[in-house]
Amino acid sequence: MLIHELLPLVGDAQSVVEVSQSGDALRELLRAPAASAYRAYVPDGEKMDAGTVVVAFLGPKPEAHIDAETVAPALRELPVGGRALLLLGWPVPELPYHRLLDELVTAGLQVLQVVPLDKVSRHGAHCAVLAARVDRLAPLRTHLSDAPLDLAGEAPDLRALLRLTGEYVFGDLLSRPLRRNLAAAGDRIKEQDERIRALEKEIAARDATIAKAESRLARARNDLADLRASTTFRIGNTVVQGARRPTRGIVSVPVGLVRIWRKRGTPGERPGPQS
């Protein structure tokens, strides 16, 4: 649901009282109709009536959001029929609703619907609570319902309440192993993240060792090439080859020595890196 679809959902709002003190930000986000009076909340100020909607933006950032305690006095001033539209700045899967629920129940408000919102990145509100001050149970609403609130409709009867409590009890039972599994999965992910970080460190250390070894190998290859290019090595090599094959050596040793003597003063041919 889009954020500007929320106020029409609350029904006819003759006056909107904002507790957040956002300036015009919240009013613009909600696209409060011109016909409704929009004002900031003043404790024990102008009396609220059944056409009043209390709006606020609650969440984890003190610079942008208020907390449940701050909105509570305004909720307690709502008369029967008054409504509240509270935007929440926490992601739905992590919603810490317990403090807000305390204040809503204490103020005599029924939570009618919690609406997940679209385009969170634009406004930061993940969901919105629709609640109303009641003196009897208001009609139950369904998830993602976009029909305007109807507080005067038929209250849930005993059969509906039996069903509701039954669904709650079974749902509560089923949520327990899921919660446990979720926590276990979270722990496993944390452990795996730590293991991945340790392995990354190990790989980085091995990369450094390999780089040092490669550097030493390159230096050794250079030294070897310099040695092979030296006159001493070439003379020695010519003599050794001659000694191994004396028949050929009678010719090859003098020829080789002459070749070395002719090329004296010029750098010897260095073998390639793979030789």
């Binding site: 992601p91 739905v92 969901c127 998830h143 993602l144 319902s145 976009d146």
Partner: peptide, 11 residues
């Protein structure tokens, strides 16, 4: 079914 959906808390 209705014309609302939500990827985080779907129907």
């Amino acid at each position: 079914v209705g014309l609302q959906n939500n990827p985080v808390a779907p129907l």
